[in-house]
Design a protein around this nucleic acid. Structure first.
Lengths: 287, 287
DNA sequence: CGAGGCCTTGAACGAAATCAAAGTCAGTGG
DNA sequence: CCACTGACTTTGATTTCGTTCAAGGCCTCG
């Protein structure tokens, strides 16, 4: 039933309490610790980093593809920041169906939904090998009272997450299938650009099914839409490799013009003369 | 274009700095101030209220129906808690179309989306006369460092908001029109119950258009669905007055059984014999 | 009483889901 | 090495749900 078989999720490297000998050495053990400044940088929060940068260290943990970071209902005590890798977060409905909520990647925070009820309300799964930074929540809030930029960071990140979800709601509520897929590609491209990768050519880390779930569509619709974009020359598609050819068009696309093929087909089906071979590309909405 | 003509929104009672003479008297001026405990109660946050409860006072402001509390892009500096009344928050897309995000009511917090960018990213409009409590954000975070329950409250409320939006995304992504309307009614009923009103009979404060926007549907679909629920006896509808008759069925409803009328109609249209007059009510999903 | 929102209902259309069948690819084991 | 398996993807045909377009009814308020 689960497309990605999530194993019972022990982190690849166990999250042990730091031994006295390594407390000050964040470079040891294959770079297992980050300081406050690095955390802030990762979150794109301007860190007017003050003093004592080396005494505030946060541990890293690695997860392998398919492993679960946390599950629904599990007691909450720590937040995570993605340092590298790709994940998905999902809701599971009463029939066991997954609903993808987000595809966190570098710089994103995980687990915020657990604060309120003290239990995670969603499930996070690694779509690739991942390196995450652990932020024990109690420790974090305590530190926030001393290091104001940390506190600001927390509020900022939570607010940002909220705004993102609002945008998602707007998209699900108002946009056509094509527009959703187009915007999804654009936002992925932008994320990759932010991370220093190519925004013109990248690999999808998720299946069509997962994309569909995320966008409120079926996998077939996602596949068809990608094919259609490919036909018009907006993108190139080869399995999970996507090339962005016309980012501007994707950004503003609302509905697809009937393709040559489809237009012809419809015209003949209705017995009408195919007077105009192809409608002028009316890619923008009228209202 | 806007269904609710939002005036240029001056609060009904101007938000002036308290004069020295009224600083300690929250009962004066028609109850314009609340203390920390009252705020926590309103938010359903267990407030192990410590000391100095009377020195932390938060001002109230009144808004009349149709007035705007804040607009998109407006500089952010304060959060609001709804003390009484009904509102909507909306996103406005590039063509001026409204997308309803939420219908805040007593105990809900407004404005959290402004923290991240320091500008509100949504618009809040009063659907009825409202009484809101002002929480100046700077003041709030400063106080949070002293009064830990306040800090907890902040994190808790933001997390709760996030979880709510996640649920919304799940609903928009996965549920049929009927299921969305059904759950909307149920959640309204629950909110009313929480507030001490009847959960069996209440008035909608919003138009069908606003409900539709909130649920990602057209107003016609909302209207039709309510009529259908009425026909089956799940609810009673008279304009904006809703009576809940079978809350359980509404909660678990996934798709509507074809009504007698519709079933007959389809059968005759296809020329088939209407052997079975009505399909047994299969209200629950198979998967 | 008339005007303007708001709501309901019907009919037709269309977008996306569903159902179905191949095709591709990576990994596995003979 | 190659055939086999199973997950993932593509594409086509059909169906269905929800939208769109249209008309009329209802209620409030000036």
């Amino acid at each position: 039933m689960l497309s990605t078989q999530a194993s019972v999720a022990r982190p690849a490297s166990p999250a042990t309490v730091p031994s006295p000998s390594m407390e000050a050495g964040r470079q040891r053990q294959g770079r297992l610790w980050s300081n406050l400044k690095e955390v802030c940088d990762l979150l794109h929060i301007p860190a007017a980093c003050t003093i004592a940068t080396e005494e505030l260290l946060f541990q890293h943990v690695q997860f392998k593809t398919g492993q679960r970071i946390h599950t629904i209902g599990q007691p909450f005590d720590t937040l995570y920041i993605v340092n590298s890798g790709f994940l998905k977060t999902v809701l599971i409905d009463e029939f066991g169906n997954e609903q993808v909520l987000s595809f966190p990647m570098k710089g994103d925070m995980l687990g915020v939904d657990g604060i309120h009820t003290r239990h995670y309300s969603s499930e996070a799964v690694a779509l690739s090998d991942c390196d995450l930074i652990l932020l024990p929540f109690k420790k974090l809030t305590a530190l926030g009272r001393i290091h104001l930029e940390l506190e600001n960071m927390m509020y900022g990140v939570m607010s940002r997450e909220l705004v993102r979800e609002q945008a998602m709601i707007g998209m699900l509520g108002a946009l056509s299938a094509e527009a959703r897929v187009a915007r999804f590609l654009v936002s992925l491209a932008e994320r990759f650009a932010q991370m220093g990768y190519s925004s013109k050519l990248f690999n999808l880390r998720m299946t069509r099914h997962e994309i569909g779930s995320y966008l409120g569509l079926t996998l077939e619709t996602v596949s068809r839409t990608l094919s259609a974009f490919n036909e018009i020359g907006l993108i190139s598609v080869d399995q999970r490799t996507i090339g962005i050819k016309d980012a501007e068009a994707l950004k503003t696309l609302r509905r697809l013009p009937p393709s040559r093929a489809r237009a012809r087909q419809q015209a003949t089906a209705k017995g009408k003369a195919g007077a105009e071979p192809a409608a002028p590309a009316q890619l923008l909405a009228s209202a």
